[in-house]
Nucleic acid binder design. Structure first.
Lengths: 184, 184
DNA sequence: CGGTAATGTCTCAAAACAGAGACAAATAAC
DNA sequence: GTTATTTGTCTCTGTTTTGAGACATTACCG
């Protein structure tokens, strides 16, 4: 019986990443908790989603900052950021999904969006640097690199969940495909 | 006022692809139709989902078959299959999503699964052929290639929806990244 | 062991969602 | 222009989801 609140948030991120409008019952189930308990911690769906947002920010920001600090070489930084995204799993997927959907109205004034911009900014700076020094192909745009980055991470997470690819190899495959895919 | 039923199915695929449990109201909204009209064509969510499944099968199968028929060169076939997936858009995304989720219990006895296997089989054959002739890197598995394929298509569709990458360039980017990403 | 905090069970009421009837309005067909 | 078909509006009913109170049960702490 330890940190139920965190359990529920983690479960919610997993569930909502796959099914945004899933009933809270499913979240409770995934967290191995009754719906009644979930409601003791969160007034409702909105509050739960807000906690998810916070957790994703915290987690992704931390992982990405670590990755950046790991080296001065932007290529190594990029590689570690990819691994960081994979390690964050659904937290990264759902986070970027939330902020790149058509419905989402992005505004730097919104604190959540600002935080997302901060995470994204780190990443963006590395890309720009690599493209300036000619490591990344000039045929593609930085925006596409960003999309591919998320796409490869999502594919890796799917593969992990599906189980058809050995978990140990996944990160290698991901970096192989992503790095080649951006012209390295 | 023409083919409302098809309109609704197309809208449903778009909506459910992003939010599987979205209320039918949202589908009706996307189709520019009232919920009452939707209910005249579909008894309920299940029937609508079944129609989506059929439409996705029809559409994807057709597009992939065309791509296969376009050439004898497996590499050209693969390239055209990627473009076909992008053209199918949410139809392809949702289709593959439905059949690769953890919840989904795959069974060849189910007609829908059999149809998916048929589409996937075409694709799989091309991959195997390319890997046998050494065109695709031996470092990665056919399963990973399949995951990456879906991932790149999803990324392309997201980029298109997000609008941050010029639509004309998207397919080029997608093929560039995917082909390099599998070692071509 | 005893006390406290967290969780589960049962229950109920409000809200959201789903489905369909009845008829008006709009659209297409002739 | 008249008729038939389709769609929209309003309405109602049943179901699912949501949220919370009251109390039993279980886990944790000293």
């Amino acid at each position: 019986m330890q940190n139920t609140q965190q359990n529920i948030v983690d479960a919610a991120i997993l569930v909502f990443n796959e099914d945004y409008s899933a009933p809270l019952e499913k979240v409770a189930e995934k967290a191995a908790v009754t719906r009644r308990t979930l409601h003791r911690y969160f007034k409702g769906r909105d509050e739960l989603l807000a906690s998810c947002e916070q957790e994703m920010q915290r987690s992704c920001n931390h992982a990405m900052t670590q990755a950046l600090a790991s080296s001065d070489n932007p290529l190594t930084q990029l590689e570690n950021m990819l691994y960081a995204g994979v390690d964050c799993g659904a937290k990264y997927s759902f986070f970027s999904k939330l902020h790149t959907r058509a419905e989402h109205q992005h505004s730097p004034h919104n604190a959540d969006c600002a935080e997302y911009d901060a995470v994204y900014g780190h990443y963006r700076a590395v890309i720009t640097r690599l493209q300036a020094q000619g490591t990344i192909s000039q045929h593609i745009t930085a925006e596409w690199v960003a999309m591919l980055f998320s796409g490869v991470i999502a594919a890796t997470i799917n593969a992990e969940a599906f189980g058809s690819v050995a978990k140990k190899s996944l990160k290698q495959f991901a970096w192989f495909s992503f790095s080649k895919g951006i012209g390295i």
